[in-house]
Design a protein around this nucleic acid. Sequence first.
RNA 1: GCUGAAGUGGUGGAAUUGGUAGACACGUUGGACUUAAAAUCCAAUGUCCAUUAGGACGUACGGGUUCAAGUCCCGUCUUCAGUACCA
Length: 1049
Amino acid sequence: MKYDFNQIEKKWQKYWAENQTFKASNNSDKPKYYVLDMFPYPSGAGLHVGHPLGYIASDIYARYKRHKGFNVLHPQGYDSFGLPAEQYAIQTGQHPAITTETNIKTYRRQLDQIGFSFDWSREVRTSSPEYYKWTQWIFIQLFESYYCNTDNKAKHINELVAIFSSEGNTNVNVACDDGIEPFSAEEWNALDTVKQQKILLQYRLTYLAETEVNWCPALGTVLANDEIVNGVSERGGHPVVRKKMTQWSMRISAYAERLLQGLNTIDWTDSLKESQRNWIGKSVGASVSFNVISAPLNHQNSTSLNHQNTSLDTERSRSEQDVISAPLNHLYKIDVFTTRPDTIFGVSFMTLAPEHELVSKITTLEQKAEVEAYIEKTAKRSERDRMADVKTISGVFTGAYAEHPFTKEPIPIWIGDYVLAGYGTGAVMSVPCGDVRDYAFAKHFNISIPNIFEGVDISEEPFTDKEKTVIGNSDFLNGMNYKKATKRAIYELEQLAQGEGKTNYRLRDAVFSRQRYWGEPFPVYYVNGMPQMIDLEHLPIRLPEVEKYLPTEEGEPPLGRAKEWHWLQYGDDAKIVSKEEFENSSPQGRLGGELELNTMPGWAGSSWYFFRYMEEANREGVFASEDALKYWENVDLYIGGAEHATGHLLYARFWVKLMKDRGFVNVEEPFKKLINQGMILGTSAIVSGVWVSFSNWNSVSDSDEDNLTISEDVTRPFLLVLSKDKLDKINEGGDVAEIINWVKSNYPNSQIVSEIDRSKPTNNVFNFSAFTGHVDVSLVNSSDELDFESFKKWRQEFYNAQLLNVEPYKVQREVEKMSKRWYNVVNPEDICNQYGADSLRLYEMFLGPLEQYKPWNTAGITGVHSFLKKLWKLYHQGENGTFYVSSESSPPWEGLGEALKTLHKTIKKVQEDIENFSFNTSVSTFMIAVNELTAQKCTSKAILEPLLVLISPYAPHIAEELYSQLGNKESISTAEFPVFDASHLVESSKNYPISFNGKMRFTIELPMDMNKEDIEKEVLSHEKTKAQLEGRTPKKVIVVPGKIVNIVG
RNA sequence: GCUGAAGUGGUGGAAUUGGUAGACACGUUGGACUUAAAAUCCAAUGUCCAUUAGGACGUACGGGUUCAAGUCCCGUCUUCAGUACCA
């Protein structure tokens, strides 16, 4: 009986689907285990062999856990909103929903073919209205929440409103926008609703704010930073302008500390946690405020500095010379953030970002021209250039001075583009002796560099080692170390009310609006410009139909094209209507207005989908029922790519914390353990050669019939394929005679350009240029030989390609990312058809450690494939290869001891491997086991049945088939995992390696229970030992019983 | 620059607490079977020297600890990933 994998795999996939073998139950006595993959975006290209790597690993783990008696939830779905479907829609006019549906069908077919144990009954799609109803609902919860810093949790906004109306905002400790005006309860209660709503927006966990975006008028769309090169659009080179747009933002910064602390409670890789820590970017230090002691006095000529500060008007009578010696006016202050308040006596200047709002206010008249020129210059440089070019030091003095909080000395205020407007306060206190950038700046502009460190030379470079710091030359901080001085400096600043301890985070609030069509619509309409939420009972707000998926001519997002996009509600009765209908409706008791035109970003739907899977049946009324959430809690094992480190994985943690705070879920973290699978790289095939092109064919003389015949073939350049070595030689200026000869012998009337006497009219001139290019890997066999006939048909321009003295032609190989662009994509369907899903699964695991990047090489799959054939044979040792397994319980057959040893060795290793996610080594272990059992001619059911359970997580189809051939009526999927019994591994003797000075020379077989002394005696009296020692007496003999013997001397 | 991970045959990769380096495969070479191919099976395969026996050298490089180092320590180099005037 042959191992007919195609038939077997189809059969069992059908069986699993019909019997709902992997449907998880929310009611079970078994312990729960939740294994999740990052759900895929269903792209038009379908899956390549790199995609299922993580799914195979998680599937093995899920199947293993079922064997171990767990109730396993292993669901799958689609992250089906996204840009490619929208772009395709823009080009073709096809609705993205249709494209998405088609792609999902392909994905599902490909996934099913690999034999995953997914519970498809719980499938989610982020683009389906029944799902995004709840994404919209969560958005509303964010809108209706604020973050209380005192209790460290989010609360309902109504609690904040209650505080405002009873005591105003002066005593609240909550996360909010900067620069909110204080108000009393009376003031709050006196405000109209619009004003109150405006203020509340500054506290909500999702809020509307003006954000600068890159707007490209020619393309009619907003561009991301990486879509812009040198100030113009990457595609088409159209100008891009910075434009302020009102956008939804998520106040993720409120959760910065909890997101950071939570990392200590979860089992993720260090590098991933480090990425998130980096992204959150916590720095502890102090905020210090410096008073500006001189301000410019002459503002009359400046229109941009048009403020009505009365105290300033009185200053205007002063002469410019008075500025520096002017009495301390303390009109402005500069707030800075520093991680080194201990170095405050080392401040010798201050630097503001060129964009800092105070720059225009404090610059003196003499410096004005220079400052403005500098600002203009830096404004022209793109953010990118500025970041790329960190070596050039630039800046300019403002003419103004600030006062040192302690010494009261004047400190010059500079502007420089090494200070970023977007970080901290956009201003720094510059301590050149303790900071490399400040140091370089001071050196460059000849600013003084006072030394405030004891016993350190700073004439060459600054001193930045916090731990070794001893402060000097610093009044009350003298002699202190970093920690003490920092504490004291903050204390003293607090006494002066000019500073306090402060923690800064790099994490910025996340922009949540996208000017796109194919995303979740917001459940929001506007009244007097203020956003209003739509009640849950009216959700989902479905995506409207539009004629085109492009922005409108006025620059509104695509939803601006919807004919009916106004909310109209009377009581419980609500509908979406046209603008006209809304305007003609009765205002009496009416709720409604224009709906939000933006849609949500891709990460909205993926930030909570893991909860949706928990609900098994009635999903209508809830995002997941309380019971389901309580039972499944959170994801035990999450497998996916590392590229989501600071996107999805951070946002999901943020939303879960919010949902926990508001009492909707019971867990603080969504993913307990997380593993990043490495990428499978493609092995590209590269063809090299020269393009030979002919010119002047048009002027071929009519008399020359031969030439005309040739010209039929060579009107277009043809490719002369040759080996990489030869091409390299030609490129290095080497011999081209071979090529010339080849062309001349095949096209006798042609001439090479360099040989032509240009004074004579010439025909049939040829020229050539080097060529290397990728070729589709399917045109190359496992020995790297190119199928040349197929190659010529593959692309039109190769139709007349020719080989030069190389046959068969071998391509060059290169390992690159698997991508359509490099023609190195391998389709899992092809592999399944040719070798079977079990071979694919085993091979993907066998390639190497899960987390590692590794190249795919289809040729290697024969190894695991022949292993499966050997496995099959092991159960078919009957006549003519018929099924035969002996089911006798007592062992009449003498080899059983050896077979038991093999089995239990395998149980032990495989169990350890799975639990350590070392799947590659268990495939080796299976191979060894099957090789050994084959050699032992093992036919015992007592061995061969448990062996199948071990293999079943990896190669489930063949395991099911053989298991059923053994007479089992049930699926193998819940069969108990064999229990390891160490007694089968006890050895009576050990083959001791005998080494001399650490080098192994030979082995001696000795009884396991022999003691040290006897071993030593036995070894030393051995012939080979004597030969090794050549008469010398050993200085020392190390005997480690059961392990090794080492003889020194 | 900083942070993290990693450097082992022609290739992918094995190697528990330091204890026989290269498991298991791919590839290559030779052989068996076959009209032939495929499939299957057998043998060899780290490098170098040697007809053999055997020997020398070998885990990026240079040191060190140890009876014994791919594994531990110090230094250097390289690669990959993330991040960056973060005050």
